[in-house]
Design a protein around this nucleic acid. Structure first.
Ligand SMILES: [Zn+2]
Ligand SMILES: [Zn+2]
Ligand SMILES: [Zn+2]
Ligand SMILES: [Zn+2]
Lengths: 172, 172
DNA sequence: GCGAATTCGGTTACTATATAACGCGGGTGC
DNA sequence: GCACCCGCGTTATATAGTAACCGAATTCGC
């Protein structure tokens, strides 16, 4: 399974880091946005907007689709979360807690590895992949703005657990 | 703009190649499937399922969502088209007409470059990108099954036409 | 020939994902 | 007070995708 934020203190630290990041960029991490971010972070796999909405309703009974989509848009702009296109789902950015690096540039190159067996989604920041794609684009005169690199397969844990055999040769 | 199938003869050749490919894999390229494939191929950019449905209704008034989705599923399985995840849209595979290569393996590694200005979508089959991603996955013990590599930006034509400046410094 | 099984696709209904549009309340500047 | 912006509640709608049922056509076994 993917990690999520294991403990309450980890979660608090992550939310504080998000707060700091927003302050630096002149944005407000409001109560709603913080709640949605917490829901994304505490999940152990990417959650769809409506799954988040269901959970949010526990704290905010009047919540509707625009409630959660607006918060998600904000969190995406701030680089605190990513959207997994293949799943139409959202996941916390593993680098969001880092104070160093691309502070002013709220996007960063990343790749997702999505386990088809357990749903775990691993975020990578592999420069070789990013560079290879940039090179390929440059070769055809294309100027990159934003990349989406996602792969589906089997994570190490599921491979070790024999899920590979189970999936590849399922008796069904 | 992207190419689509420029002429009627190109289209006929592409459809015949698709037919041959289906025969080899024991599948039937029925009239419906051929119509949907033709609609995908004649477009100069990726089309969504409902855009295809609208066009299909001209030839097949009773068409409904399942009509087009079933045809699209078939065409995807045969490797004749791809889905662009970022757009929820479908585009013809540039390699579908080739008799050589991965005949029995109906998927192939590919990448899309999507122009945010004109909508042109370029399909690449860049081995360096595919290998870099495979390496990154192997390094964390992840077994790849299917990859999605898509980038948004500006195509060469739009850059040359000054769309870069227009987009980057639009007076609005 | 006849029934079983399969494939294809018409049809209805529905679920899931995402956005448009309106309006209100609270803060800020003046 | 008033204009302005922002955040968000609220309603309605748009877009994307699927489930389930049905009947016609084909194939296969007998
Ligand atoms: Zn990230
Ligand atoms: Zn797994
Ligand atoms: Zn292709
Ligand atoms: Zn362009």
């Amino acid at each position: 399974m993917a990690a999520g934020q294991g403990s309450a203190s980890e979660m608090a630290r992550a939310l504080d880091a998000a707060e700091a990041r927003c302050v630096r960029s002149g944005a407000q991490l409001t109560e709603l946005r913080r709640q949605v971010l917490a829901l994304v972070l505490e999940a152990d796999q990417p959650l769809g907007a409506y799954a988040l909405l269901d959970r949010l309703k526990a704290q905010r009974p009047g919540a509707a689709p625009p409630t959660v989509y607006r918060a998600l848009d904000f969190l995406l702009e701030q680089g605190l979360i990513h959207k997994v296109e293949r799943l139409n789902a959202f996941i916390g950015c593993v680098e969001a807690g880092h104070d160093h690096g691309h502070d002013h540039d709220h996007a960063h190159d990343h790749q997702f590895l999505i386990c088809g067996s357990c749903g775990a989604t691993i975020e990578l920041s592999d420069h070789a992949v990013a560079h290879a794609l940039a090179d390929a684009a440059r070769r055809v005169g294309f100027q990159l703005r934003k990349t989406t690199v996602e792969a589906e397969g089997l994570c190490a844990a599921c491979l070790a657990a024999g899920a590979g055999a189970a999936v590849a040769a399922s008796p069904g």
